[in-house]
């Protein structure tokens, strides 16, 4: 006679705890499930995502088309992975465009894995990579006076591009001038390849529903939530059955 109330109490306690844990994800599943049922009617399969951070989650960081204006000239990296000077195609550049400066009559475009030296006519002078000494992956490009400075995870480096030497700056620090990325003017934006639009809201909702938006971990987590919901259903049935038997006695 004592085992059943104890079992019911235990089931009830864990049913509540696990139910609370699952509640948020049940809401996500419910909302995304309902919306997905009507995605065609809502036009979600035809509406493309234009949120740079969300595009970058899908590895499509080109949506924002980061660009830098250097005395009226625009350096940008298009969806096809090529760097452009205004509307002129220069060369492929590995990684996101992180900065650009004008130096010694050249335009310097810094991508994560490569630094392009570009002539005013749009010709590629040189591509400097890790194999030729570039401190990569780059996260910034700037100037200290007339000296080019590059940033990676270890900090800033003074760059001598004539001899391809990169050395740490003396302690004390100087003022580093960096350009903030800007939005490419429409006239140039229309002249270079636009981002290929494939990421729609239906895709995002499907990936939220399955957990795939967080990669492998997200899928495993949603699997866990699925098992949890199964457990909640069984504990609910067990409690109902035990309660019913007690009531009959």
């Amino acid at each position: 006679m004592r085992r059943r109330p104890r079992l019911v109490n235990l089931l009830w306690r864990w049913h509540r705890r696990l139910g609370l844990l699952a509640a948020l994800f049940v809401l996500v599943l419910a909302v995304t499930g309902v919306v997905l049922n009507h995605s065609s009617g809502l036009g979600l399969d035809r509406r493309f995502v234009d949120w740079p951070w969300l595009n970058s989650v899908y590895g499509d960081a080109s949506g924002d088309l980061a660009a830098f204006e250097l005395e009226g000239r625009w350096v940008s990296r298009a969806a096809n992975g090529l760097v452009y000077l205004d509307g002129l195609e220069v060369a492929p550049c590995s990684g996101t465009l992180v900065g650009a400066v004008q130096h010694a009559g050249m335009f310097l475009a810094g991508c994560e894995q490569e630094l392009l030296l570009i002539a005013p006519g749009g010709e590629l002078i040189e591509a400097v990579t890790a194999s030729t000494g570039l401190p990569s992956p780059l996260s910034g490009v700037g100037l200290v006076g007339d000296v080019v400075v590059l940033r990676n995870a270890e900090g800033w480096w003074l760059a001598d591009l004539e001899v391809l030497e990169f050395r740490a700056p003396a302690p004390g620090g100087s003022l580093i001038s960096q350009l903030a990325p800007d939005r490419l003017p429409e006239s140039i934006r229309n002249a270079i390849p636009a981002r290929e639009q494939w990421l729609n809201w239906e895709r995002v909702l499907l990936d939220l529903h399955s957990g795939r938006i967080a990669g492998r971990v997200g899928v495993l987590w949603m699997d866990f939530i699925g098992v949890l919901l199964g457990g909640l259903a069984m504990s609910g049935i067990a409690m109902w059955w035990l309660h019913r038997r007690r009531g009959r006695r």
């Binding site: 995605s39 399969d45 494939w198 895709r203």
Partner: peptide
């Protein structure tokens, strides 16, 4: 048919 193609593309 579009979601299938988009799924494959993604």
């Amino acid at each position: 048919g579009k979601p299938g193609a988009l799924l494959r593309a993604a």
